[in-house]
Computed example of a mutant assay.
Amino acid sequence: MAIKTLRQLVSADSCKTLVVKVGSALLVDANGQPREEWLSGLSAEIAAMHAKGQRVVVVSSGAIALGASRLHLDKGGRANLADAQAAASVGQIGLAGLWSSKLQTHGLNAAQILVTVGDLEDRRRYLNASSTLERLLDCGVVPIVNENDSVATEEIRFGDNDRLAARVGQAAGADAVLLLSDVDGLMDRDPSQAGARLIPIVEGVTDDIRSMASGSSASGLGSGGMISKIQAAEIAERAGIALAIINGTRDHPVSAAVDADLGTLFIPTRQDGGRRAWLGGRIAPAGSLTVDEGCIAALAKGASLLAAGITKVDGSFQRGELVSIKDADGCAIAQGLVEYDAAVCAALSGKRHEEQAEVLGHAPRSAVVHRDQMVLL
């Protein structure tokens, strides 16, 4: 059953598996202390969903904020990478214990899963994570997922739990992802501007929808913003997963939003297969290939990327790594797994198939990025 209303998100009939993302500012107050009463209310809601046969995965921020308070670190533990990693190391214990105690009150077991970008970007590790989530859910456990900020660096991290929630939704085979935010949903302009209007339904993310997003996080505690939520919706859409943004600041936030029918629901208009959804959702390309207009037109018709259409090569990628495919303005139009390393791509760029053997010293492969290993964005 396709999810077309917020109420269907909390119904096991239409949403067997739901991913709920909780931001730092909702779970931790300005002094770095957990908002115990609020979390008790949300835990009760999760328990009610579980009692009705719905499987729930929680993607929870808050480790850095909790740890920074315990270590008395400046700037909420985000002054530098070393502080953030130290705060996360301490805070992860507290965060897991907090969720475990609240859910145990309702007879539910919690499990902690810490992931990095690499765990979901690498196909084998992604499948391992998917298998673990499936088994935990089958056992009636509520997985609590967070980015492993104690080891992640700026270069290899999600940086926000919105996109992480969408990727976890793919791995868990979820029907929907629910992002608890500090706003009611996507507004048609900056919420501080007069006349800003909530967009209740979005059917497919377009350039117009992207233009409505703001990158700021009102609380200063989190790392996301509306831009990351739009990106999360695009990742979810590839797997046919609905995504909703609701205001999480209220007590019993899910019930409050559903009863008021207040939020933004992104209804997917496409559904890629499992591998293509995973490929399209990857966020850390090792480099990029800029292509000409003729190549762009061919890709839109389902063709593979040939060397003749490449005008520029950036990065130091190796064969088999993810590359972004861009137009002349630098806009990403596709991404896929490359058949040559960066140096060879640069040597082959602009050359037709019959010219490539002379450069390589052997017969060239059929494409630089084969259409079976590529997705349009």
Rank of each mutant, 00 (worst) to 15 (best):
V254M: 00
G225S: 14
V258P: 01
V28L: 01
C345N: 11
Y340A: 10
L198A: 08
D190E: 12
T153N: 12
R55F: 05
V313E: 09
T290G: 05
A260D: 06
D208M: 09
G107D: 11
R282H: 03
R135N: 14
D13G: 08
T264P: 06
P191M: 11
A334G: 12
K52D: 12
A286M: 11
T17N: 05
Q54E: 01
K301E: 07
I3F: 11
D272M: 15
L360W: 13
G159A: 05
I46M: 13
E45K: 08
P200T: 10
G77L: 05
V168W: 02
A84F: 02
L289T: 11
L299H: 11
V202M: 08
R352Q: 10
R319P: 09
G350V: 03
L95M: 07
D272H: 13
L103A: 12
R167P: 00
A242L: 08
A298H: 13
D184Q: 03
R197Q: 15
V177D: 00
K21S: 04
G315N: 08
A44P: 00
V202Y: 04
L337Q: 09
A346P: 00
T264Y: 02
P268L: 02
S223F: 02
A218C: 03
R197H: 11
R123F: 08
M374L: 15
R7H: 03
S316K: 14
G204R: 08
M212F: 15
E354R: 14
Q33W: 03
Q8I: 02
A65D: 13
R352E: 10
R371Q: 14
R7V: 01
L136P: 07
E339C: 14
N80F: 00
V344S: 07
A47D: 14
D29E: 09
T290E: 15
A343C: 07
N146E: 02
V59K: 04
C295N: 07
S43T: 15
G240Q: 08
A44I: 02
S61W: 02
V10M: 05
A68H: 12
C331G: 13
P285K: 12
Q356A: 09
E37N: 14
V10E: 02
R7K: 06
A48G: 03
L305R: 12
E354A: 15
Y340D: 02
V202P: 10
D372G: 11
K16S: 15
I93C: 12
